[in-house]
Design a protein around this nucleic acid. Sequence first.
DNA 1: CGACGGTTTGAGTTGCGTCAATTCGTGTGG
DNA 2: CCACACGAATTGACGCAACTCAAACCGTCG
Lengths: 247, 247
Amino acid sequence: MTSSHLHQTRCQTCSLSSLCLPLSLSLDDVEQFDTIVRRRAPLTRGETLYMQGEAFENVYAVRSGSLKQTIIDTDGEEQITSFYLPGELVGLDSIDSAVHPGFLTALERTTVCEIPFKRLESLSEHLPELRHQLYRCMSREIVDDRRLMRLLSSKSADERLASFFHNLSIRFDRCGHSAERFRLPMSRSDIGTYLGLAIETISRVLGRFQQQELLTIQGRHVEILDMAALKKHAGIIAPCCNERRRA
Amino acid sequence: MTSSHLHQTRCQTCSLSSLCLPLSLSLDDVEQFDTIVRRRAPLTRGETLYMQGEAFENVYAVRSGSLKQTIIDTDGEEQITSFYLPGELVGLDSIDSAVHPGFLTALERTTVCEIPFKRLESLSEHLPELRHQLYRCMSREIVDDRRLMRLLSSKSADERLASFFHNLSIRFDRCGHSAERFRLPMSRSDIGTYLGLAIETISRVLGRFQQQELLTIQGRHVEILDMAALKKHAGIIAPCCNERRRA
DNA sequence: CGACGGTTTGAGTTGCGTCAATTCGTGTGG
DNA sequence: CCACACGAATTGACGCAACTCAAACCGTCG
């Protein structure tokens, strides 16, 4: 039956476990961890995992697909603050206020693991590695946000987009896709909102990138032709943060 | 003698303890916590607490004064990613890579408490409240960074500065200063780098704010005359995040 | 008093946003 | 199966907010 099917998958056999919270846990510990994880039915494109203002109960690990976080400001403007790919942890920004600061929406068919935060917290009492991993995840999120801040505060449209694609490439690579060819899960408009650029600017810059033969892009299919040049265009280089992570 | 003087101050008697990590600890627990905290000699204006690339060992709680974090990008450009005021925790972004991502520099005479992270982590094993407080601090830092991202990605110079002053006002208020009158610890140039604006723009906008009688500013002395109007100018309103925090 | 950061003010330039029109792509219904 | 419709993406023309460069001003410290 369906519900048992949903519970079949386990951390022990998950291909993403080397990216996810169980990262540095022993087999025994992973087994303990696995018991508090709930598998959810897949979300379809556009479906929301939670709403802005909703009470915070769980964090989520992305298994497949992708999501975006959208925050609606007091002035009613919509902003995208982050995208989440497989192996990444969603909801860490909700701990402080115990309320979700934004909407979490699936960009495509997406499966996530639901992890009740209270139980995660208690479990972390006896698993120092898990605790450390949690601290690291949150710390990394801060570092990544700071990188985006620097991008937004002083970089040109070209640099922002080059950095964006370079960053995506690294993250797709890490979760088992190709670093050179991938399908964009988000629309141009999403990219624009995220990078603080008008959709028309996105379009123009991508046109330029194709002329310069940095990459090709048709619809949502991207192929990066000259990674080195893309990196150079980016200015702020993501790998300096990302290499270390793997260590 | 001096060194004993430095160790005199204790968390139990610190006026900031209600903002800081010991926030929700019992008296006994605060005492335990206090034993791992090291008081340092004050930093003078311009002195660095740590350098970019240095190994991460400690986090720091600001007791008095203020600091800025500066990151030098691969392209050599200098960016200020955050300011830290009394009661705030510094260094949480260094956990992931175990290396400080930027320089931490005192903006004025500043005292900090040094907290060895390894010992903090072990201590947190037996103090659930401390653990939770740490998670909250990190989560809050993410939320605050996201707010700045939204500011940078789509707000005008006026909105950025209004939001900046409003935010400062709240934070000064929280650590015991006046919300309406305070001394800016940072230069206009620092503000510009932080908000992604040219120093000339800062100057012009502040001129405009004075004409509109939102505030007066001479040198570094600020007086906010019309908090409500300032808030309205800000668009993104900080308090929505900050009110919750106190709950 | 003169020198030197830090700040303000002015004039000219430009990257990107806005508006508007066109094209492309995909799904729908006759 | 084609025609139509609708949203997503592109392209072009134009304006403006903020940047850059340059000069003047200010406070402070030797």
